[in-house]
Design a protein around this nucleic acid. Structure first.
Lengths: 131, 131
DNA sequence: AGAATAGTTCAACATACGTTGAATTATATT
DNA sequence: AATATAATTCAACGTATGTTGAACTATTCT
């Protein structure tokens, strides 16, 4: 289906999206959290196994996972048969939104040339205009 | 003193790994840096003007821009006619790499179901196998 | 040469954050 | 009921980081 809404490619991004994006990026900017997320995406979702693979203490994993959960990027659920185990998984909705917002922000199509409202050219054109 | 030659190709190129992505995300995870980058992408590239629009002290802008420069995401160059002015711009090569690496990591196609190598199911299947 | 302008670097501070080990909770087994 | 197991929360620590004002550089103008 074609999108007939006005082209918004060159408009400033909504401030709310910037804040949301910053929140997500902050949660993702920690190397070990990226590693954890990588394993989770690839199907390693048990706390204990993550600890084994990445050589991290269980409480550290809990901490990093809570950060990822607070920003909505991952879900956590207990095993229905043995509630002592917890499984993490990617929140598919959040992932889609992350990709959308990130793509909107970093798309090369948004790049615009420098505005000549500052620096010597601007001063020169001002003087031209005023004389 | 910083080197103001246009540095399009200054990137160390171990791009496809997690550490590079983490480095980029860390630089981008600071809200004001995201704001700065947003303005720069949209053509506001003079230090003084960035300070006006975002109400930030010039030394703060310098600091944040140096972080973005260190990870290769932005270039800085002095005005050829009046060297007192500095213009920032996004490093197109780095932007493309960022989009590629980010896309590779966060594509939904990578998502895999949970491996049953942990938790009660794994134990049960082990016991089944061993008896 | 000296003053002025645009940016950068430095020093200092407060806060945020990752890490660790111990204590605690939740759930299951005996 | 008591013990064991998986995970979380808590307290403490050191380091990293954003912010500020002052000093400094680089460059231009008079």
């Amino acid at each position: 289906m074609l999108n007939y809404s006005p082209d918004q490619e060159n408009l400033p991004l909504p401030a709310a999206n910037l804040q949301t994006l910053a929140r997500w990026l902050k949660a993702l900017s920690e190397p070990k959290r990226l590693l954890l997320l990588d394993r989770i995406i690839q199907g390693v979702q048990c706390n204990c196994e993550l600890g084994d693979e990445l050589d991290m203490a269980p409480n550290l994993i809990s901490h990093h996972m809570s950060v990822l959960r607070e920003v909505g990027l991952v879900n956590a659920e207990r095993d229905p048969f043995d509630g002592r185990w917890v499984y993490y998984s990617i929140n598919r909705t959040a992932l889609d939104q992350l990709n959308a917002v990130f793509g909107d922000f970093f798309t090369p199509e948004r790049i615009q040339p420098r505005r000549l409202t500052c620096g010597p050219q601007a001063i020169a054109s001002n003087q031209t205009r005023n004389t």
